[in-house]
Simulated assay, not measured.
Amino acid sequence: MKKWLLLLALLCSPLSQAADPFWRMSLPDPQGKTQALAQWQGKMLIVNYWATWCGPCRQEMPEMIALQKKYGKTVQFVGIAIDEPVPTARFAKELGVNYPILIGGNSAMNMMRQQGNQQGGLPFTVFFDAKGKQVAQQLGKISHEQLEAQIKKYAR
């Protein structure tokens, strides 16, 4: 009986989200340093898949920069670029991106499909609560109001 209770407690705990393939992934940043996605568990996480050549992606990033500054204690934005490291780093620097940017490659395309983006379109934004559970996603350009609404709903 104790084994079952222990198993049930583990399955219901926030750490059980670590079993999600997303949280086991690691991706390089533009400088080539590998970053584990699990390092951002414990806060609400907003993952934005984007590319430097994607007009709507470029248009929504200033909103994410502003909201990262405003909600940084409880929310973490992470950008996953479907792009090459050099143009990604150059664009992020020009725009003053204040949140981590990772290089996604083929892994990111698979992650997007698993998170509900069957079309593979960009931009694609995924929301995780502080326990690591995916709670929402949006394909296409996202507005400041839509981002704020999700933050107010899921950030703690």
Results as ranks from 00 to 15, higher is better:
N117V: 07
L5Q: 15
K73L: 05
L15P: 02
Y99R: 04
A51F: 06
N98Q: 09
K141T: 12
A108Y: 05
A92C: 12
I101T: 00
T52N: 07
N48D: 14
W50I: 03
F128V: 01
I151K: 02
I142S: 12
M61K: 04
C57I: 11
L139S: 13
L6N: 05
E84A: 12
G105E: 09
G32P: 10
M44A: 07
N106Q: 14
H144C: 00
W40L: 03
T88S: 00
P14N: 05
M1Y: 05
Q114C: 02
G72R: 12
F127G: 01
S107W: 11
G140C: 13
G32C: 10
L37T: 01
A136R: 02
Y71I: 10
R90N: 12
L8W: 10
E60N: 13
V78Y: 02
F77W: 05
S13P: 10
H144R: 15
K131S: 09
Q134V: 09
G42A: 08
V75S: 01
G72C: 05
L27S: 06
D83L: 11
Q31N: 11
F127V: 15
G42M: 08
P87R: 11
D129Q: 07
I101D: 03
K43P: 02
W40E: 00
A89K: 15
Y49P: 00
A92E: 01
W53A: 12
I46Y: 07
R58D: 05
G55W: 05
T34G: 10
K43S: 07
A130R: 09
T88M: 03
M64Y: 03
K93G: 13
A130E: 06
G132E: 02
G96Q: 11
R113F: 11
Q59N: 10
K141E: 15
R24S: 14
E84F: 12
K153P: 02
I101F: 07
E63L: 06
D83F: 10
T125R: 01
K2F: 13
A89W: 02
F128L: 04
S143Q: 09
G120R: 05
L8V: 13
I142R: 10
C12W: 12
L37V: 03
L102I: 07
L139Q: 09
T125D: 00
